[in-house]
Design a protein around this nucleic acid. Sequence first.
DNA 1: GCACCCCATGTTGAATACAAGAATGGGTTC
DNA 2: GAACCCATTCTTGTATTCAACATGGGGTGC
Lengths: 234, 234
Amino acid sequence: MSQQPANALAEQVYLRIKDEIFDFHLLPSDRFTETALAERYGVSRTPLRDALYRLKREGYLEVGFRSGWSVCPFDFVRFDELYDLRILIEINAVERLCQREADLPLAALKKTWLVTAAERETEPRRIAELDESFHCALVEAAGNREVSRVHAELTEKIRIIRRLDFLKEQRVDATYDEHAKLLRLILRRKSTEASILLRSHITQSKNEVRKITLHMLHEARATMQRVSTKTRAR
Amino acid sequence: MSQQPANALAEQVYLRIKDEIFDFHLLPSDRFTETALAERYGVSRTPLRDALYRLKREGYLEVGFRSGWSVCPFDFVRFDELYDLRILIEINAVERLCQREADLPLAALKKTWLVTAAERETEPRRIAELDESFHCALVEAAGNREVSRVHAELTEKIRIIRRLDFLKEQRVDATYDEHAKLLRLILRRKSTEASILLRSHITQSKNEVRKITLHMLHEARATMQRVSTKTRAR
DNA sequence: GCACCCCATGTTGAATACAAGAATGGGTTC
DNA sequence: GAACCCATTCTTGTATTCAACATGGGGTGC
């Protein structure tokens, strides 16, 4: 676990800040300074700045010249574009999988998603994680590492709103149903049907996301934090 | 020109190092230290490290824990994967353009590529730039900024070998012919034909790239440096 | 009462200083 | 002569210091 990696502190701080954004502890348009954050995390500004600039390049943060940092406000057009990119990549992955004659390495996914209603996960945060894993696994199974990398990055970028989707029970059920159906179609190499289903599956998420308002974000913030403290148990 | 941008030095150094890699001044597997590079560029290690870590995350450099930096060796499998991602993105862009009924914003491209043989550019480096611009412009015209961003990044990543393609005259001619043909197909909304042509166009580049050996790289290095000094005139 | 100006403070950008451990070379021993 | 061990040097990771300038508030002039 504690090997001796390069840039350990910066990496840790990077993950921590990103979590704070995803958990709504740092809200869009919140402002802060390097010194304040450095003190809060108990590190110097050097590794902190490394993390901040990384997050800036990834589109999470903005910095004003000698006038402090702020969390980027939500850009729903951008989320839309990310969802379209997601559709493009995932459909391509499914098509490639369906073209392959050899056995597909999807055993782990079958174990998670082809289960009875009683065995299904119910905790929203956990389901969001499983959902991410499902889609990432499909793309990775297609075998192009560069595509997987891009897909993993975009997965992170939509995580903050994707999580909200699973606060609604019917969305959880739909997810389980559609993942199971999609898996079966892929395993039987039904390329066209699988693509159609996948497109509609992702588009549904995209449409749910469009309904999100800033008011909902504040509500969700409370919910997520309750869930968060319960889960982390500390 | 000299506004007061954030992180000016780091950005400058970043571009400079990247150019050195693309121009084969820094060769794959070359090793160097932060101190040496900082002295060479006349900056301190702080902005330099920012640039180095950025290049590391982009896959150009590696760093050993307290044991120096090195330029990543060529990974031809990765180039293949990047070309496949490129095909995926660009074909999608062309399809979207063909679906659009309104006039397409491709006037600039027509001006550059629908020209007589006499008006064609001949300098390899310049043609490589034009080729990049052509493909990036197509993707940007499709209108998804996130897709454009990913495409721009992958364009940079294959630049180092793509340039070599245009050292051969017949490849230059083919590029002009195919770009012109592709543009005309898009303007007439011939989606299927355009996609087929584009796929074959990119695949040809991809296959040329596969022929590249490390021996060729050393030859190309000399050529590029000659061209480079001639062009830059300093 | 209002607008404007100046100065103190705060902020990031960059340079320097310090710490920890990896690599290297020389000396010693078998 | 070869292998091994130890100390020194070198390299990156992190903290601290210095510099330039944006910002905000208080005071002053009208």
